[in-house]
Each structure stands twice: as structure tokens, then as C-alpha cells.
């Protein structure tokens, strides 16, 4: 009996969870101190990406600087936008703005100081990237970073734009 319940449970979990989730109601701050709610993230009706990162996370910095290299070009071509959500806590949070400015990244940088959005979106470890479509639905996610992943991300964004 127990085993049967267990099997049914597992099937239910893994059979039904792949719905289209939307961005949760979580109050955050932008890197320059303005209040923003995660459910307000938008790109004027175009798709956008959310990248979770931290100043101490090496693969995250590799990912963001790889995206930054071509960001302006990609923005011109496709109108995409990146929200870079930092999960740095009060130990390293004050380094976020200096790092972003000195690296000259053009992303929308958001602070998630006590990992509230990270928890709400089920993120295990950074880097973790989401693609959100025009309707505000999360349509694709990816964990980790390997060189070349940024190309997959942009392809995905273009693919979603076309839908």
C-alpha cells in the first residue's frame, strides 16, 4: 500500500509540474535603491531573461560578461532585455554596483538580499537563467554556465520573440 502511494505520488509530481509559471509577488530593490516587485519585470511586451548571479560566483561572472560582450548588438537586433538578479547578502552586496559599473554592464540589476526571489522561483544555486515570454510566463530555464550557453540563451529569446 505504502509503495503504491509512493509511486502514485512520484508520478503525480513529475507528471503535473511542468505548467507555465508566472513571476511571483516579491518586493525587491534595484541596485540604485528603487523599489521594484518581481511581478513588474517586463520588456514592453517583448520577452526577457532573468539571470541569478552573485559577485562571488565565478561561472556567473563568466556568463554575464559573455552576454555583456554582445548585449548592445543583441538589444539592437532583437530588443531583448536582461534582469541580473544578485543574491549577494550584506557581506558582498555593496560590491554589486561597483562591479556592474566598472564592468560597464547594461543589464537591469536587481538585489535579492535575503534570497526571497531565489526561493520563490526554486533556484538551487547560481547561475540560473529564466526566459520569460511577452505574457510574463516563464517558458525556459537553465542552470549552470558553460562557455557557449549565452548563445543558447539568445537563440531561445529570439525563438520566443517569434511566437
Amino acid at each position: 500500500m505504502k509503495r503504491l502511494i509512493l509511486i502514485v505520488t512520484v508520478l503525480l509530481w513529475f507528471g503535473g509540474v511542468f505548467g507555465q509559471q508566472v513571476l511571483p509577488n516579491v518586493s525587491l530593490k534595484t541596485v540604485d535603491g528603487k523599489a521594484i516587485n518581481a511581478n513588474e519585470f517586463n520588456n514592453d511586451g517583448k520577452p526577457f531573461a532573468i539571470c541569478f548571479w552573485a559577485t562571488w560566483c565565478k561561472p556567473c561572472l563568466m556568463e554575464l560578461s559573455a552576454i555583456a560582450e554582445n548585449y548592445e548588438q543583441w538589444q539592437e537586433d532583437t530588443g531583448i532585455k536582461i534582469y541580473a538578479v544578485s543574491i549577494d547578502d550584506s557581506r558582498t552586496q555593496s560590491k554589486v554596483q561597483p562591479l556592474v559599473s566598472s564592468s560597464d554592464w547594461g543589464f537591469e540589476v536587481i538585489l535579492d538580499v535575503n534570497s526571497e526571489l531565489k526561493r520563490a522561483l526554486g533556484v538551487n544555486n547560481p547561475p540560473h537563467t529564466f526566459v520569460v515570454n511577452a505574457k510574463g510566463e516563464i517558458v525556459w530555464q537553465h542552470v549552470g554556465y558553460a562557455p557557449g550557453d549565452e548563445e543558447n540563451l539568445i537563440e531561445k529569446l529570439i525563438e520566443v520573440s517569434g511566437e
Binding site: 502511494i5 502514485v8 505520488t9 512520484v10 503525480l12 509530481w13
Partner: peptide, 8 residues
């Protein structure tokens, strides 16, 4: 298990 089933 029952709780997990219900959540499922």
C-alpha cells in the same frame, strides 16, 4: 506519504 500524495 499521504501528505505527499495530497500535494501531488
Amino acid at each position: 506519504l499521504l501528505i505527499m500524495l495530497v500535494s501531488g
